[in-house]
């Protein structure tokens, strides 16, 4: 599903954010990417959903070479990757419903189906009564679940979550992790980036550890 070969990424003259990363994530796996702040976790996820291009090396996602991808392919690839951003990236002037519907609107899904799918997803995440609210009216945990709803509403093949428990308390963290596992159980490949060692305690999942841009 995801293959990286000797990927380097540098921003200007600073130390590279990623150094010689090679890895394979097969379809249906659940993987953690971990490491201290600044290790390159976010950059790695960005490479996978093509928000950044590797400076050198090769990246294949769902059979596509990310080094030379065109606008049309890029958008169709991104429709198969759901992303939960560290800062959520919700639109404050759009309702919860509209925020979640975006993922389907860009695909040209008819509005009756959009309505059905968004309702269904919001109900699944326990946000059914919040669909008319605007994100700033909601708590951090709720906003985060909206971000997850938007990422999964179109049944992506891959779900990327960047620090999904970053500013949640213990209970919400556990709830969110349970949710991600459930999504994984439905067949989605899930990659979670986190700096929290606590989250990894006792997990039997695969862990990709980064330190200063290198895999360790």
């Amino acid at each position: 599903m995801i293959r990286l070969f000797h990927v380097y990424k540098s921003f200007g003259s600073k130390n590279p954010a990623l150094i010689d990363i090679s890895l394979t994530v097969p379809k249906g796996e659940f993987v953690f990417v971990t490491g201290p702040s600044g290790a390159g976790k976010t950059t790695l996820l960005k490479i996978i959903f093509c928000a950044e291009k590797p400076t050198s090396g090769h990246a294949l996602v769902d059979g596509r070479n990310l080094m030379r991808i065109k606008d049309g392919e890029l958008s169709s690839l991104r429709r198969r990757i759901g992303v939960v951003f560290q800062d959520f990236k919700l639109l404050p002037l759009r309702t919860v419903f509209e925020n979640v519907a975006l993922s389907l609107e860009v695909m040209g899904v008819p509005s009756s189906i959009i309505r059905k799918k968004v309702h269904q997803t919001l109900r699944y995440l326990g946000l059914a009564d919040k669909e008319g609210y605007y994100p700033p009216q909601l708590s951090g945990g709720e906003q985060q679940r909206i971000a997850i709803a938007r990422a999964i509403v179109n049944n992506p093949l891959i779900l990327l979550a960047d620090e999904p428990t970053g500013n949640l308390d213990y209970d919400l963290t556990m709830e969110t992790m349970a949710l991600l596992k459930e999504i994984h159980a439905r067949g989605t490949t899930v990659i979670v980036a986190t700096h929290s060692q606590e989250l990894l305690k006792g997990t039997k999942r695969r862990i990709i550890a980064l330190h200063k841009g290198r895999m360790v």
């Binding site: 049309g72 958008s75 991104r78 951003f85 990236k89």
Partner: peptide, 16 residues
């Protein structure tokens, strides 16, 4: 600007 960025990230084509 923010909206355009997000639209692109959830898979909108440039044309869209």
């Amino acid at each position: 600007k923010d909206e355009i960025e997000i639209l692109k990230l959830v898979g909108a084509t440039n044309r869209f």
